[in-house]
Design a binder for these strands. Structure first.
Length: 234
DNA sequence: TGGACTCGCCCGCTTACATCA
DNA sequence: GTTGATGTAAGCGGGCGAGTC
């Protein structure tokens, strides 16, 4: 893990805080700290979302009447999500999470993963309906299902890249070997050419002729077929 | 009809955390 | 118990297509 960017990214997204505070909640410094902590601490991926969360996550985000619509769409979506997260996080501050730790219980359960895997095998992208259904089935937020599919696609692509890379590596090795073999063959032919027995073992001149100047071997000019050439290059 | 804007989705990169050797 | 490697959930920025005005 690189530590070089730590100055830019602490344990919570600054952009969310900055933009949301600008556009929605003019928070004091301590307010922002509280928001930042609760934003991370309260998230429990295994906590089944409330019905309102399920709706808000997808449908509520892009309300055309929202003041967020004045911002870029992408940003408004994320900020709304973040706001949603913070709001629900505060509400979800349970006893077990009531500590200084944040982002606990990050892992999905085996059952959840299995269902997601099965769904991914059927189709590696989800339409909104499928996403909502899957989220409801698994007791996750739609955003979590979406993220899981994104990460899963990325893993698949990475694996495929590794496989392709291995294949190309083997191709390269084979070509190198073939190249070495051909070079060796050329050397043998050159040595044969220089030997006095070379012309004695040649076929009669009626089938093949070699131009003494350009070292091309060709069939007689009367033949209709294209002239095969053996070039003994440098 | 073309351009500006918004929205939703995706991808690539990155970080934080969990788990394991 | 500590540590480094690895896996993975999630955040962020940016690109792109579709819809709307």
């Amino acid at each position: 893990m690189g530590d070089t960017d730590l100055g830019l990214s602490l344990s919570f997204p600054h952009h969310h805080l900055r933009t949301t505070s600008q556009h929605h909640h003019p928070l004091t410094s301590s307010d922002r700290n509280y928001e930042a902590r609760s934003f991370l601490r309260g998230i429990d991926v295994n906590r089944p979302p409330s019905a309102s969360e399920e709706c808000e996550d997808d449908a509520g985000v892009s309300s055309p009447n929202s003041t967020l619509s004045t911002i870029s769409g992408k940003r408004s979506e994320r900020e709304a999500n973040a706001e949603d997260e913070r709001t629900s996080s505060r509400g979800a501050m349970s006893d077990e999470d009531d500590g200084e730790n944040c982002r606990k219980k990050l892992r999905l359960s085996k059952d959840q993963s299995a269902v997601l895997e099965e769904s991914f095998r059927e189709h590696n992208t989800l339409n909104p309906k499928q996403k909502l259904a899957l989220a409801k089935q698994l007791g996750l937020r739609p955003r979590q299902v979406e993220v899981w599919f994104q990460n899963r696609r990325a893993r698949t692509k990475l694996k495929q890249t590794e496989v392709d890379c291995e294949f190309l590596k083997r191709c390269c090795e084979n070509l190198t070997e073939e190249n070495r073999r051909l070079h060796k063959e050329v050397q043998q032919l050159r040595a044969l050419k220089l030997s006095p027995h070379f012309f004695m073992h040649m076929s009669p001149p009626t089938t093949l002729t070699m131009c003494p100047s350009c070292e091309h071997v060709s069939v007689p000019s009367t033949a209709a077929a294209p002239t095969p050439r053996i070039v003994l290059g440098p």
